[in-house]
Amino acid sequence: MATGGRRGAAAAPLLVAVAALLLGAAGHLYPGEVCPGMDIRNNLTRLHELENCSVIEGHLQILLMFKTRPEDFRDLSFPKLIMITDYLLLFRVYGLESLKDLFPNLTVIRGSRLFFNYALVIFEMVHLKELGLYNLMNITRGSVRIEKNNELCYLATIDWSRILDSVEDNYIVLNKDDNEECGDICPGTAKGKTNCPATVINGQFVERCWTHSHCQKVCPTICKSHGCTAEGLCCHSECLGNCSQPDDPTKCVACRNFYLDGRCVETCPPPYYHFQDWRCVNFSFCQDLHHKCKNSRRQGCHQYVIHNNKCIPECPSGYTMNSSNLLCTPCLGPCPKVCHLLEGEKTIDSVTSAQELRGCTVINGSLIINIRGGNNLAAELEANLGLIEEISGYLKIRRSYALVSLSFFRKLRLIRGETLEIGNYSFYALDNQNLRQLWDWSKHNLTITQGKLFFHYNPKLCLSEIHKMEEVSGTKGRQERNDIALKTNGDQASCENELLKFSYIRTSFDKI
Results as ranks from 00 to 15, higher is better:
residue 231 E to L: 10
residue 298 R to K: 07
residue 188 G to P: 06
residue 49 E to C: 14
residue 159 D to E: 10
residue 297 R to F: 07
residue 126 V to I: 03
residue 75 D to G: 02
residue 139 I to N: 00
residue 176 K to V: 05
residue 331 C to L: 02
residue 141 R to V: 01
residue 249 P to C: 04
residue 239 C to P: 00
residue 40 I to F: 15
residue 137 M to H: 13
residue 323 S to H: 14
residue 313 P to V: 05
residue 165 D to V: 09
residue 263 R to I: 10
residue 267 T to R: 03
residue 245 Q to E: 13
residue 257 N to P: 00
residue 305 V to C: 10
residue 200 V to R: 10
residue 56 I to S: 06
residue 122 I to C: 07
residue 67 K to N: 03
residue 322 N to K: 09
residue 43 N to W: 15
residue 241 G to C: 08
residue 320 T to K: 05
residue 52 N to G: 11
residue 280 C to F: 01
residue 89 L to S: 01
residue 303 Q to T: 15
residue 199 T to M: 06
residue 192 G to M: 09
residue 107 T to W: 04
residue 197 P to T: 13
residue 241 G to P: 00
residue 265 V to F: 08
residue 293 C to P: 01
residue 182 C to A: 04
residue 286 C to S: 09
residue 170 N to G: 10
residue 55 V to N: 08
residue 170 N to S: 07
residue 314 E to H: 03
residue 102 L to G: 04
residue 329 T to L: 08
residue 312 I to Q: 03
residue 244 S to I: 06
residue 205 F to W: 08
residue 104 P to M: 01
residue 192 G to F: 09
residue 186 C to S: 03
residue 184 D to L: 05
residue 298 R to A: 08
residue 156 A to P: 04
residue 206 V to A: 06
residue 102 L to C: 05
residue 110 R to V: 08
residue 162 R to T: 10
residue 320 T to C: 08
residue 230 A to Q: 14
residue 42 N to L: 00
residue 174 L to I: 08
residue 327 L to I: 07
residue 257 N to K: 04
residue 84 I to V: 03
residue 278 W to N: 00
residue 186 C to V: 00
residue 28 H to K: 12
residue 47 L to V: 10
residue 265 V to L: 08
residue 90 L to W: 07
residue 111 G to N: 00
residue 332 L to R: 13
residue 149 N to T: 07
residue 115 F to I: 00
residue 139 I to M: 05
residue 200 V to I: 11
residue 318 G to W: 09
residue 119 A to C: 03
residue 40 I to R: 00
residue 247 D to H: 15
residue 179 N to G: 12
residue 201 I to F: 12
residue 29 L to A: 12
residue 124 E to S: 02
residue 28 H to Y: 05
residue 135 N to F: 00
residue 115 F to M: 01
residue 154 Y to H: 15
residue 32 G to E: 06
residue 232 G to F: 04
residue 183 G to I: 13
residue 269 P to M: 02
residue 46 R to Y: 04
residue 273 Y to K: 06
residue 190 A to R: 07
residue 119 A to H: 00
residue 83 M to W: 02
residue 77 S to L: 11
residue 106 L to W: 01
residue 285 F to H: 13
residue 48 H to G: 01
residue 269 P to E: 06
residue 38 M to P: 02
residue 128 L to C: 03
residue 244 S to Y: 06
residue 101 D to K: 10
residue 202 N to V: 04
residue 333 G to C: 15
residue 30 Y to R: 02
residue 168 E to F: 08
residue 154 Y to R: 07
residue 101 D to G: 05
residue 82 I to L: 10
residue 197 P to H: 08
residue 218 V to D: 08
residue 134 Y to T: 05
residue 273 Y to M: 15
residue 218 V to G: 05
residue 190 A to G: 09
residue 155 L to A: 02
residue 304 Y to Q: 06
residue 336 P to G: 05
residue 134 Y to A: 06
residue 108 V to L: 13
residue 55 V to F: 12
residue 219 C to S: 02
residue 250 T to C: 06
residue 311 C to F: 12
residue 288 D to I: 12
residue 182 C to P: 04
residue 272 Y to L: 14
residue 273 Y to R: 06
residue 176 K to E: 03
residue 185 I to Q: 05
residue 155 L to E: 02
residue 92 R to S: 00
residue 97 E to W: 14
residue 60 L to P: 01
residue 247 D to W: 12
residue 218 V to I: 14
residue 277 D to V: 03
residue 129 K to F: 04
residue 323 S to E: 10
residue 147 E to S: 02
residue 64 L to P: 00
residue 158 I to N: 01
residue 306 I to F: 14
residue 238 E to S: 07
residue 224 K to V: 07
residue 52 N to S: 11
residue 315 C to L: 04
residue 213 S to G: 07
residue 117 N to G: 11
residue 180 E to A: 13
residue 124 E to A: 01
residue 259 Y to H: 12
residue 249 P to F: 05
residue 135 N to E: 01
residue 146 I to Q: 04
residue 293 C to G: 06
residue 248 D to N: 06
residue 144 V to W: 00
residue 299 Q to E: 14
residue 42 N to P: 00
residue 92 R to L: 01
residue 92 R to H: 00
residue 70 P to N: 08
residue 200 V to W: 02
residue 280 C to G: 02
residue 196 C to F: 03
residue 125 M to S: 06
residue 304 Y to N: 06
residue 184 D to E: 05
residue 149 N to E: 00
residue 78 F to A: 06
residue 92 R to Q: 00
residue 86 D to K: 03
residue 32 G to V: 10
residue 75 D to I: 04
residue 268 C to Q: 00
residue 234 C to P: 01
residue 335 C to R: 03
residue 137 M to R: 08
residue 135 N to G: 09
residue 96 L to I: 03
residue 275 F to E: 02
residue 333 G to A: 12
residue 160 W to T: 01
residue 256 R to N: 15
residue 84 I to S: 00
residue 193 K to R: 11
residue 203 G to R: 07
residue 316 P to V: 06
residue 53 C to L: 00
residue 137 M to S: 13
residue 123 F to G: 01
residue 87 Y to V: 00
residue 245 Q to L: 10
residue 280 C to P: 00
residue 241 G to A: 06
residue 156 A to S: 11
residue 227 G to Y: 04
residue 323 S to G: 14
residue 97 E to H: 14
